[in-house]
Design a protein around this nucleic acid. Structure first.
Lengths: 126, 126, 126, 126
DNA sequence: GTGGTCTAGACCACC
DNA sequence: GTGGTCTAGACCACG
């Protein structure tokens, strides 16, 4: 459900947090639902369980997850609100990336091409 | 001529490298031209001279800049070629950012909004 | 494994790069092997960790090392090839030094003496 | 009479000083002889007159040169002694270079090859 | 524990 | 004034 890019300058940590918030934003995960297990996620994303654990711990601190020892993590009631804040952060990062792309010399046409490519990639995965 | 975002997940020194390559891509800097001085850039971008020096040293190792001690840095003859590679990297980073934005829950409409905002911001600066 | 001469006109970071490439050339380090840790090297060579980090970063940019955050640096598969290039640089530097020694007034006999001394020094260390 | 290698890690400054001392060591310049003019050397070596001037100033401070305003620089009576010290420095630098070459992975055979090449180069220039 | 980045400030070589 | 190198120490991301 989530995809990680280990080469991205955005820390894996933040990618996990953003991904989970995205799942809530998209309605694929609702308050009260059980979140994926830390170990399961670590295996499927091929990253260190410690990194996932830290992301979950931070989400719990933010009140996005309710963690129950020996059971698992559950989407908190306040999660949708937190997810909305995550959206704003995601927009900020996108804006950053766009400005940097422009500064790096990309034309708006180049940017349109990249967007098209990403859209196409999503279709294939469907 | 270059703008730095200290809050960006992309390291400052990479932003400098990308920015310089962008100036060449845009034709604002040509082979043989003198690059901005390390200290001057550091002051105008309000960052540490050492950080700029690091970016410049790496650009020199890549053959993008010719550095002359006691004189300054000059755009190398092979710079346009190197800049083209920089373009590809910039595209990769943009692609990353888009995928992460999508994963974070942004709709394509949201993304269009952000693009519009960035375009508008550029117009204002003109 | 590596020795640094802080009084040498050759920058310390270049000495580190040359030393690591030498270890590969000599077969003491092979692709896939773990390189010494930055902090460990810094301590044993009695130099600043930042200086070692700089050398390692450049080796990583050249593709000689694969650096894994939180883990360590590994000798890349392409390292032996890069090491061969390093050999050529080392020869160039030696040629320089010889020409300067000659220009400084050293006779070929003097030079033979120095070579003998260095050979002898190596034997002692054995 | 002197040759400079601008790419050498040994500062140009020191190359000039070493070269002059070498001329005395070789007997091509004797106490009381007029040294080459600063401007003339700068032109023939294609380097900045300021750099030559600094080297000469330091040689004067060391007592190797007698500088006469409006006339030129002359080899001091004590020059041969100073030149002998220069010889020791040159040997030290050679020793450094050899050790670094060995550490960089050069075999003694490689080193012999380089020496042969330098010898050959000198013959050609004759 | 590991590497990665940045700041701050020093000294050197050179124009 | 310019670039080049090194030290020192801080903070972050990761295992």
């Amino acid at each position: 459900m989530i995809e990680i890019d280990p080469t991205s300058p955005l820390p894996i940590n933040d990618q996990i947090k953003g991904g989970l918030k995205g799942l809530v934003t998209k309605g694929l995960l609702r308050p009260g639902d059980k979140a994926p297990s830390i170990r399961g996620l670590a295996v499927s994303l091929k990253i260190n369980p410690n990194t996932v654990a830290r992301a979950f711990r931070e989400l719990a601190l933010e009140g996005f997850l309710d963690s129950k020892r020996g059971d698992g993590n559950y989407i908190a009631r306040s999660a949708p609100g937190q997810a909305r804040e995550g959206l704003a952060e995601a927009k900020d990062r996108l804006r950053d990336a766009l400005r940097q792309a422009r500064q790096g010399g990309l034309s708006w046409d180049d940017i349109s091409d990249v967007i098209g490519a990403v859209k196409g990639g999503e279709d294939e995965t469907r």
